[in-house]
């Protein structure tokens, strides 16, 4: 009897990865510019005599750590999904124009000098979110016209929209004042900040819901890797699967982008890394990539805040600088097993 992935193996691995994530979260919470003691922090705080350890842990470290985990999980999950539907190992969460759409939204908010807040968030986030989603919608509509299952049309539409919007972003930055330009560029490089708990609950909840939805189409993603025509002959509802995959991946990417700007590399290399080690079955690849993505971005962000302390690096710099070489090592070790590089 030949067994493919069993539910028990999957649960075991997911549980293991979740434990690792929890451990890394705890460890990273204790690392930082200020030394804090866990025992003291856990003793709590009362308004009469504020406990600095507790304040730092709960209002500075934990929100940022949770934020990094949410963003990492969203980007890695979206990357897995898009690589499967587009049947393209080079796909990342930003491939369908999300990055430029979000960037355009952000720079419009900055240049417009908007200063209202929504759920304690600056308008940059809201504009980036709206820009990301409307760009993906535009790309999807254009791609749909090119043919029933034409993934190539979708990819090309994404690339062209990206290039076009990037040009608009450059145009706007060149006519904007330098202070505004700095704010935008910093945002575009990808950056973490301490967030309000409400924001974390809402975004964490929506990313988790998105990942669960994607898990339920993961068997169909396996079949879709063989191409839409093959998948349809196997009885898969291809249009529905493609639509759910694109819509949910775009949504969780937009959430991530509006939280932390454009953090590259996570959505590209984490899925590949997990696939190289554990194989291509999306039922496993999706949940595990999300967990590994969370761990990876958490570690990268911790480095970003301590390496040049008290200053901070944009986390996107760390993900690319560490993730790139790490991925190349994985690729050299495992490529013959998983990829068809002949």
């Amino acid at each position: 009897m030949h067994r493919t992935l069993s539910p028990r193996t999957l649960l075991l691995r997911v549980a293991l990865a979740a434990v690792v994530l929890a451990a890394v979260m705890l460890a990273c919470a204790l690392v930082g510019t200020e030394r804090i003691s866990l025992a003291s922090a856990l003793s709590g705080s009362d308004p009469a005599s504020p406990n600095p350890d507790f304040e730092i842990l709960m209002h500075v470290r934990v929100p940022r750590i949770v934020l990094a985990a949410i963003v990492g999980a969203a980007l890695a999950g979206a990357g897995v999904t898009l690589q499967a539907v587009l049947r393209n190992p080079l796909a990342d969460p930003y491939i369908l124009g999300i990055s430029s759409g979000a960037g355009l939204g952000a720079i419009l908010a900055v240049i417009g000098g908007l200063n209202w807040t929504l759920f304690g968030r600056s308008p940059i986030a809201a504009f980036a979110f709206a820009g990301a989603l409307s760009t993906v919608w535009l790309v999807w509509m254009v791609g749909r016209v090119t043919g029933k299952f034409h993934v190539t049309g979708l990819l090309l539409a994404g690339v062209v929209v990206n290039a076009c919007f990037s040009a608009v972003i450059m145009f706007l930055t060149s006519i904007a004042r330098s202070q505004e330009v700095h704010a935008t560029i910093f945002w575009l490089m990808g950056n973490m900040a301490e967030e309000d708990f409400l924001v974390l609950w809402v975004s964490g909840g929506s990313v988790l819901a998105g990942l669960v939805a994607l898990f339920f189409i993961s068997p169909q993603l396996n079949a879709l890797s063989f191409g839409p025509v093959e998948a349809q002959s196997m009885g898969i509802n291809v249009r529905r699967t493609q639509f759910v995959a694109f819509a949910v991946a775009a949504f969780i990417t937009a959430v991530a982008v509006s939280l932390s700007g454009l953090i590259g590399f996570v959505g590209l290399i984490v899925p590949h890394g997990v696939r190289l080690v554990l194989g291509p079955d999306h039922r496993q690849l999706l949940p595990l990539s999300s967990l590994v993505g969370a761990v990876f971005l958490l570690l990268a962000d911790t480095l970003a805040r301590v390496v040049v302390a008290p200053a901070q690096l944009p986390v996107g710099v760390i993900t690319a600088m560490i993730g790139g070489p790490f991925f190349l090592v994985l690729l050299m070790r495992y490529n013959r097993k998983v990829y068809r590089l002949t």
């Binding site: 396996n222 063989f226 194989g279 291509p280 097993k337």
Partner: peptide, 20 residues
Amino acid sequence: ESIPPFGFSVAETVMMARTP
């Protein structure tokens, strides 16, 4: 032939027929 860019095994490939 239609081969996916990811390396599914023979057993995994045949099992996909049962996806629905």
